[in-house]
Design a protein around this nucleic acid. Sequence first.
DNA 1: GCGTTCTACTATAACGTTATAGTTTCACCT
DNA 2: AGGTGAAACTATAACGTTATAGTAGAACGC
Lengths: 352, 352
Amino acid sequence: MDSNQPPDRVEKQEPDSHGSGRGLPKRPTLKTIATITGLSIATVSRALKDAADIGEATKLRVREIANEIGYRPNRAGVRLRTGKTNVICLVMSAESHVMNHTAQLIYSISTALRNTSYHLNVTPYSADDDPMEPIRYIVETGSADGVILNQIKPEDPRIRYLSEHGVPFATHGRTEMGIAHPYFDFDNESFTELGVEKLVSLGRRNLALLSPPPEQTYGKHMIDGLVAAAKRLGVDCRTLELVTSDSNMTEIEAAISRTMQEPNPPDGFISGGTSGAMAIVNALENEGLQLGKDVDLVAKEALHFLVHFRKEIIVVQENVGQAGTFLVKALTASIEKDGPPQQDLEVPVLDL
Amino acid sequence: MDSNQPPDRVEKQEPDSHGSGRGLPKRPTLKTIATITGLSIATVSRALKDAADIGEATKLRVREIANEIGYRPNRAGVRLRTGKTNVICLVMSAESHVMNHTAQLIYSISTALRNTSYHLNVTPYSADDDPMEPIRYIVETGSADGVILNQIKPEDPRIRYLSEHGVPFATHGRTEMGIAHPYFDFDNESFTELGVEKLVSLGRRNLALLSPPPEQTYGKHMIDGLVAAAKRLGVDCRTLELVTSDSNMTEIEAAISRTMQEPNPPDGFISGGTSGAMAIVNALENEGLQLGKDVDLVAKEALHFLVHFRKEIIVVQENVGQAGTFLVKALTASIEKDGPPQQDLEVPVLDL
DNA sequence: GCGTTCTACTATAACGTTATAGTTTCACCT
DNA sequence: AGGTGAAACTATAACGTTATAGTAGAACGC
């Protein structure tokens, strides 16, 4: 990278390392502006930060020149001096069944970060990895000002660790640890409650939830909502705990087929994701059942596939973009110590 | 962040900013190790880099202590001194019709980056943005050692710019600019050729390609493959240039319905993506046509949805994970000036 | 025993930034 | 006139790292 060459010597004898800059004009620094204006480096620095003890005329002149020569602060310098990284690290779970979700989260976060001074750093980990490892790395190297986490568990060691080390973070999802922190969550409990109500209003009396693993808080929330609503409305319910991922849809289909052949099969389904819903539909149709007639399905998704898959599916849309935007706002506020932790829930919408 | 506190003074009077570190032990630096071992900072630095002029015993001792106290190099220090950022920036197109693709790319890249010293930085831009802007930023601030680009155009100004500035980069897709650089690409030309062959072997004689925009190189490749194979096998072909995105599937469906009502409708379709394929199927079925009987569809996808959508769809799987892995390898090699640019194509597989 | 060479280390400066503690200049008050 | 104080600026050091030049001491040749 020309603009950031090793400072000491001119590079060997290689004539022009990448066919790039003729006389390599070198990236401007505060010193450049100082030389041009005849001011000291310190004054230039303070002028650009709009400090109180710099004259208005000077500020104007400095800003003008900075603009003209295309000055951009050197991140490494700032970081070394202040400890401020201007990096936000998204530590993301990279299991296939959450990837579409995550993709949208990445997109919305990085979009929300444009026009801020923060950069997005993505660190994945997979099921076999220790989820603590990326967190420890970030804390130990001080490589980010704040962290965003997803796939939150009720008792989540990452959150305890970050909180104990004073590293600002925000989560997509909630814990049950009583540690106040910024978060955004889809209200999964309301979602399953609404789903139950909808299915019951359609005459269904025996419901099944294709649920995410209950180790995840949102899985628990879904089950809670299901059980509460079913009890309240006096209908039967069960959970089918099958790992929902693209790769084992066939397996899920088989399990659902089996369920439908048992004595008292469900007539209403709820699914928390796109591929789960597709698996349910395929299994039901294989069993000769007709969606909207013999059985009904309520499904939540972040994509827009299900409406095109079968129009009979009752779809609740989750707006992940909203989550990203909020998380960025909440996290930056937390980094800049701006009031108490901001928290928000997305309310599911389902016409009854 | 404790481990990276502004160095000068102790923070105000706030008793404990985040309930974190008691006596804040401060993150170890080379100096810490130097003090412990009684060596100089320079020696410690060189010992950790396994330099030739340091004694074996010393190296061992330094490494041991470094390990013990959990030393991690300060990135800002390294970066300031050497210009090496250890960041790789994925500049990603964030249009909805490529997001699933991109999600997998992000995942595979960041996975390939684990256990390397590089970090992944994601910078999105959308259709209305100037695609050059993130590139200029990276070059001007020297914020990355290398760049990965996707959604490549035949004549792509980003590539000219990066190349002129000597910034290493790798692309997912190809240009036609004759600038040698590392890339990975799915062989879309072969894909449509195979698709045509397959459809012709099924007796289809009038083919239609739901094509990506031909401004993109891969769109052009697909059209080239289609036209060449159709000509070779003596069948008719056309391209339907509709913007394929989740959001306007309804529009695509309508357009395809219209096409089917015109005089000489296609009997074989090729689609380059998941939602396009779903739109085609929906439109055809609305017109009362049966997949696998009246018409056939060959589709490429990176997800695993289509097989579950209609088993009659002839699916070609694209393995985006492969792309990420390769791009990382090729880009890091290029950064470290390791031989000529590495390039690879994914060969589509379709049983005829 | 003196120069030479090698090994294993050290001292120093510099990368770009910013917090702090000055310093200079000038206006104003009594 | 002398002191006070504000306004506007500067000098300095430090953050953690590494490239370079330098040095101390041992080993070796003749």
